[in-house]
């Protein structure tokens, strides 16, 4: 009785496995297709300099000292330049919470990998825009 039950269980496992083999896989073709990122995704930041008031609250809120502020670098009336160090950033979102002037946001861009560590230190020019060179691989350009 129990031996027959064992064989039944084994057959059940094999049935599930064969069904798995012929069903569609769960994973994505990652570089060619990407998942949808929700609105609140805490990816890399974007700094809107028109709204910035150089209050420095983001720098104060940051737990890992990933943000550096340069108050002398002014484009508009009273803004400041932000330097982000993504080799330190933990994407906690405290800086975005701390900003009361709608000047700092997260973007859904999460693939930040670079060839070297220095390239992860974002200049003010890079942090103000999310446009960048699209990645190229085997003749195909994506994102």
């Amino acid at each position: 009785m129990s031996k027959l039950g064992v064989i039944k269980d084994i057959l059940q496992v094999l049935r599930h496995i064969v069904r798995q083999v012929f069903s569609r896989p769960f994973t994505y073709f990652y570089p060619f297709e990407d998942r949808e990122y929700p609105e609140r995704t805490r990816g890399r930041h974007i700094h809107i300099r028109e709204n910035c008031t150089a209050c420095g609250q983001c720098v104060r809120a940051c737990p890992v000292v990933a943000i550096r502020i340069d108050k002398s670098d002014r484009k508009y009336e009273k803004d400041a330049a932000l330097y982000f160090d993504y080799s330190r950033c933990i994407f906690c979102g405290l800086c975005v919470d701390a900003c009361r002037f709608d000047a700092l946001y997260h973007t859904p861009v999460v693939d930040l990998s670079e060839g070297s560590r220095d390239e992860l230190k974002y200049d003010p020019e890079r942090i103000e825009t999310i446009e960048r060179e699209p990645l190229e691989w085997r003749g195909r350009r994506f994102r």
Partner: peptide
Amino acid sequence: KVWARVQDRRGPF
């Protein structure tokens, strides 16, 4: 490939 399919993956592609 078969292992990947059993495990809901795609395997090498």
